[in-house]
Design a protein around this nucleic acid. Structure first.
Length: 883
DNA sequence: GGTTTCACG
DNA sequence: ACGTACGTGAAACCG
């Protein structure tokens, strides 16, 4: 019975792999001293993964030592011709050894021997009766060691995936035994090590030869039996090279090492070394993980943040330019309990438990006084919560969360602790660390810890203010923050507080009707299937359709058969059940998500109060949650009826809606400055028809059939998304080649657009980010990735984000201006919803005409582009009628 | 908690 | 050759 498992790691090769695995993030992985840390970071992950997986009892990480090895004695060009190691990599090697010390692993090197030889020697020394051996390496050289007790894991991509070589795997992959790998290299060579091999013989040929003859030596024994060929000539001519190559590729299992297996016993991490090391490297996530793994960390050296428990409120507790934090544990600030409030500056901080302080007149006065400025974290959340207590909140001058989002949408984080550490401020814990998570989330029993946490948040806000304002300035984003996003957050807060009235009675009617219809369709499905099953389960449905009923499989998902709409559409004619399923799906979606979903979130005031998330999307759009009011059905009549439940809050009021026509294509026309695209908009043409005429060479507008217009529309969409022939072909159900032709013609007809795409991708590759018209920024870390998919995705994003994001900028600006106008004109009309290119209002009927004039005027003139902007409006008694 | 599906712009 | 349209949120299932 084996008790031991020995892990042998090829340190150099995995470090090298690690370096390139995170090469794209090279500049993001730097510690305070400017040391690159990407390889160190990735090595840590690789080693953690393999230890967790293999649970070794003994570990050795072997390194190469010296520039020459015994192999150079035979062949002076060994490993010649390699590109020289990047200095960013070299500088990390010493620290990787420190990391290994910290992880409690032994490392070893031997002058003039390679890591491979050390590993080979140890693998041979370990008694197979006593040890299982796992080797981890970044290249395949070591696979020759594979045997019944030796497994070799080779990293394939990234940091987490490895290919596991066992004798069976080698057999399957090459049809060879592990020992024959050496012979294969003898014949085919190895470019990375500059092992020459025989001319014109590659892996494939080598395998064929070895399958027949077994070894290199045996090939030469029987060389005379081979029939005449170029290959045979090469083999004869280069016999010396073949034998030398084999020798070079052979791992020395007799290296004079002076470590014994007993020295390699693994006893866990050496925290006294590891913790300071992680800190030096700025590896906060690994530090956090040590904490959550229940490992006791050496006392955190968080600075003390003194505070006063504000039991009695006095006027001297307030002054201008303080920071304020209102604590709620639940996300939904429309309903969450306020469990504590803290305010202050870097000199003094006050903490008050619960929400009682909100009733205090002095506190309310401070909040309401616009001349006394306050900095906050998440203004909208704070404002809405205070509003519930009747507390007016004026004088807000900065929002840390919002600013951090603008600076880098990728790292945006709604936890102060995590956000702060992203800006190298460490004196505040994460909420998860203090309150826990899931069902156990709550105020800690240690009240002092709770109070201290609130005080720390206030201090963090105060300290980060300087950092973030400077960063906004540096990135030319101060206007975006102060003139657009920050003022918008107040408008959004008011919209959320106002809410929109939803008639529960209408939804209840629909619920009964849909329930009836669902039941009927369900019965038909079961009848066709010959059995009952869970129609909501794609898995069970797949079994019925593709196994029981033997319908053709069109598409597969990761886990089984796809039953998505586009698949079912194609199966419609094959069996009547398919159509029933489509009907069921459609109604079930409306019933569960919209009818039942909305009923659940109607407040006692008869309204739904969504939350717009202003700091989430990568493009600058808003998102809407609880409920999401940005995806209420409209395309299909069945679903559209949901909008009948959205009504004005007063009798004799109307719903008014105005949306931008083709804003994204207009933005594209503007930023690309394409003559023809601009011309079409300036002439007020139907843009899809216009595209159709140019792309399909149609002379007269009346010859554009609806179908051709539909195709042109799809092309226009594709352009905005960063077109690919495949995507377009899927969308239109045409061949890839046809799609390619459409795209090529489009670019020919709209050269400005083509140039924009080329330029923006180039710019993204150079700068690492793209920008909107108002300097909203999106970083694209994968834009130079060597992985085709990741890189292509980043390229499409580079094209799309300035378009989608600038459109978002424009609607936000329009919202600010409309809000201002409505105030100036003392209108009762109220802005209720924003749906990306649409604004929804409620207003007394008497105001509608004025409202329409104002809204359209503002939307169309919010910004000046090289093409006109167009807004279309509609009015109705419900949102349904306002179409 | 991940996956699939489907609603919107 | 690669395997794709851009941006979201919610419900349901399932391990």
């Amino acid at each position: 019975m084996k008790k031991n498992k020995l892990l042998l790691v090829d340190g150099n090769s995995i470090a090298f792999r690690a370096f390139f695995a995170l090469y794209n993030s090279l500049e993001r992985f730097k510690n305070k001293q400017g040391l690159h840390t990407n390889a160190i970071y990735a090595v840590n992950t690789m080693l953690e993964n393999i230890v967790a997986e293999e649970q070794p009892t003994h570990i050795l990480v072997a390194f190469d030592a010296g520039n020459t090895t015994f192999r150079h004695e035979y062949f002076e060009d060994y490993k010649a011709g390699r590109e020289k190691t990047p200095s960013e990599f070299k500088e990390q090697m010493p620290y990787i050894r420190d990391l290994i010390d910290g992880l409690g692993m032994k490392h070893y090197e031997l002058l003039n021997y390679e890591a491979d030889d050390i590993i080979g020697t140890l693998a041979k020394q370990a008694d197979p009766e006593e040890f299982d051996i796992v080797v981890l390496s970044g290249d395949k050289d070591l696979t020759q060691l594979v045997s019944d007790n030796v497994t070799v894991n080779v990293t394939v991509k990234g940091v987490s995936e490895t290919e596991v070589y066992t004798p069976a795997h080698i057999k399957e992959k090459y049809g060879l035994t592990p020992q024959q790998i050496i012979d294969m290299k003898g014949l085919a060579g190895d470019q990375s090590d500059n092992i020459p091999g025989v001319t014109k013989i590659g892996e494939k040929t080598a395998i064929k030869l070895l399958t027949e003859y077994g070894t290199v030596e045996n090939i030469y024994e029987h060389i005379d039996d081979m029939k005449k060929s170029k290959m045979k000539e090469n083999l004869i001519k280069e016999k010396d090279i073949a034998l030398l190559s084999k020798k070079l590729a052979t791992i020395n299992v007799e290296a004079p090492i002076d470590v014994s297996l007993d020295d390699l016993k693994y006893e866990g991490k050496n925290l006294d070394k590891l913790v300071p090391f992680y800190k030096e490297m700025n590896f906060n996530s690994f530090l956090d993980k040590l904490g959550t793994d229940g490992i006791e960390l050496p006392a955190e050296d968080m600075a003390e943040v003194p505070y006063t428990l504000a039991e009695e409120i006095t006027s001297d507790m307030f002054e201008t330019d303080m920071s304020l934090y209102v604590e709620m544990l639940d996300d939904n600030y429309h309903t969450a309990d306020v469990i504590g409030i803290a305010w202050g500056n870097q000199e003094r901080i006050y903490v008050s438990e619960g929400s009682a302080v909100l009733e205090n007149q002095l506190f309310q006065n401070w909040l309401a006084d616009s001349s006394l400025t306050k900095k906050v974290f998440d203004f909208k959340r704070t404002y809405v919560a205070l509003n519930r207590f009747g507390a007016a909140f004026n004088g807000a001058k900065f929002d840390i969360l919002l600013a951090a989002y603008l600076l880098d949408t990728l790292g945006s984080n709604d936890d102060i602790g995590e956000l702060a550490s992203g800006f190298d401020y460490r004196d505040v814990d994460t909420d998860e660390a203090v309150y826990g998570k899931g069902v156990k989330k709550g105020v800690p029993a240690d009240k002092a810890a709770f109070h201290s946490h609130l005080a720390r948040k206030v201090k963090a806000i105060d300290v980060l203010y300087a950092t973030l304002t400077a960063a906004l300035e540096e990135k030319n984003q101060s206007e975006l923050f102060y003139d657009i996003e920050f003022p918008l957050s107040k408008i959004l807060a008011d919209m959320e507080i106002t809410g929109i009235t939803v008639q529960a009675s209408r939804l209840e009617e629909m619920k009964v009707e849909f329930a009836q219809r669902l039941h009927e369709i369900e019965q038909k499905v079961y009848e066709e299937a010959g059995e009952t099953f869970n129609l909501n389960s794609p898995k069970q449905l797949g079994v019925i359709l593709f196994e029981k009923m033997q319908l053709p499989v069109i598409k597969k998902t990761k886990t089984g058969y796809s039953t998505a709409v586009d698949v079912l559409e194609q199966l419609r004619d094959k069996a009547p059940i398919v159509d029933y399923i489509l009907q069921y799906r459609q109604i079930a979606k409306i019933q569960s998500t919209y009818v039942e979903g909305l009923l659940k979130v109607i407040f006692p005031d008869g309204k739904v109060h969504t939350r717009y998330i202003q700091t989430l999307t990568q493009t600058g759009r808003l998102s809407s949650v609880d409920p999401n009011l940005q995806n209420i059905p409209i395309r299909l009549e069945e679903g559209r009826k949901i909008r009948q439940a959205f009504v004005p809050r007063e009798k004799n009021w109307k719903i008014f809606s105005s949306d931008y026509s083709q804003i994204e294509l207009r933005v594209l026309a503007h930023i690309s400055d394409d003559e023809h695209l601009k011309e079409a908009f300036i002439a007020g043409q139907d843009i899809h028809a216009s595209t159709a005429m140019r792309v399909f060479g149609i002379e007269h507008a009346e010859d554009v059939t609806p179908n051709i217009r539909r195709q042109a529309k799809a092309v226009n969409f594709g352009i905005v998304y960063g077109i690919s022939d495949y995507g377009l072909s899927q969308n239109l159900g045409i061949s890839r080649k046809e799609a390619r032709t459409f795209i090529d013609t489009y670019f020919e007809k709209y050269p400005g657009v083509k140039k924009y795409m080329k330029d923006i991708v180039r710019e993204a590759k150079d700068k690492g980010y793209v920008e909107t018209l108002y300097h909203r920024r999106r970083y694209l870390p994968d834009i130079n990735n060597r992985n085709f998919n990741l890189r292509s995705f980043a390229e499409r994003t580079a094209i799309n984000t300035p378009i989608q994001g600038s459109a978002a900028d424009i609607l936000k600006i329009a919202m600010l201006m409309i809000d201002k106008r409505l105030r100036e004109e003392n209108m009762q009309a109220t802005m209720l919803l924003q749906v990306h290119d649409e604004l929804v209002f409620e207003a007394p009927e008497s105001e509608i005409e004025t409202l329409q004039t104002i809204v359209e005027d503002v939307m169309e003139n919010a910004v000046k582009l090289r093409v006109p902007l167009k807004a279309d409006s509609s009015i109705g008694d419900t949102w349904y009628e306002a179409k």
